[in-house]
């Protein structure tokens, strides 16, 4: 029996304190995932809290056939997806003009032979703006496939979508992102 399974068995037998060891072990991964989708630290902490409370409530459904980490990550991805959908329902998408840093980065990208550094704040603000604009399935699939570099099969397992659906959503997501970028370029008159 691996250490995680022992801890889970202890929690299920009533030793709630064993759950703290699971939290300590996996919270860095959950925080990294939540920070990809939430916009500020309050949202991040709320999201991770929701993941962990759900994990505790559903611990009895963990069968032990796959590692606990896979089970937890699946639950975390689905919680992030629900979070994105809730935010979309509440129409909390920020629509502001491009900042000076974003304009400067775009200008450098358009008019200079050497591409600007990816580390510049303008690039980070632009990618955040583009991702925030995408609908939840597109946002999730771009995050998992293009940014985290996960395989299509892995995404299918994490999200519960079929492999063809992941491919279709990835294709549409990239197209949506390109259209949004084209519109941004038109409005920023570059």
């Amino acid at each position: 029996m691996d250490p995680d399974s022992k801890l889970i068995a202890a929690v299920l037998q009533g030793d709630i304190d064993s759950f703290e060891s699971l939290i300590q072990k996996y919270q860095p991964r959950l925080f990294a995932m939540a920070r990809r989708y939430a916009r500020n630290e309050t949202e991040v902490q709320d999201l991770v809290q929701e993941m962990l409370i759900k994990a505790y409530q559903r611990l009895g459904s963990f069968r032990g056939r796959a590692p606990f980490e896979h089970w937890l990550m699946r639950l975390a991805v689905r919680t992030c997806y629900d979070f994105l959908r809730a935010r979309r329902r509440n129409r909390e998408t920020a629509c502001t003009d491009l900042s000076d840093e974003e304009n400067q980065w775009l200008d450098q990208f358009a008019h200079h032979a050497a591409p600007p550094a990816e580390s510049e704040p303008g690039a980070r603000e632009l990618i955040q703006r583009s991702l925030d604009h995408l609908p939840p399935p597109a946002r999730l699939v771009i995050g998992l496939l293009e940014i985290e570099g996960r395989s299509v099969k892995e995404i299918a397992q994490l999200t519960g979508w079929s492999v063809p659906l992941v491919k279709v959503r990835a294709f549409r997501a990239r197209r949506m992102m390109r259209k949004y970028i084209e519109r941004l370029l038109r409005t920023s008159s570059l």
């Binding site: 591409p115 690039a123 632009l126 990618i127 940014i147």
Partner: peptide, 12 residues
Amino acid sequence: LVNALLAAARAH
């Protein structure tokens, strides 16, 4: 531009 932005996200 999309590729550059995604690379920026991967780099951070």
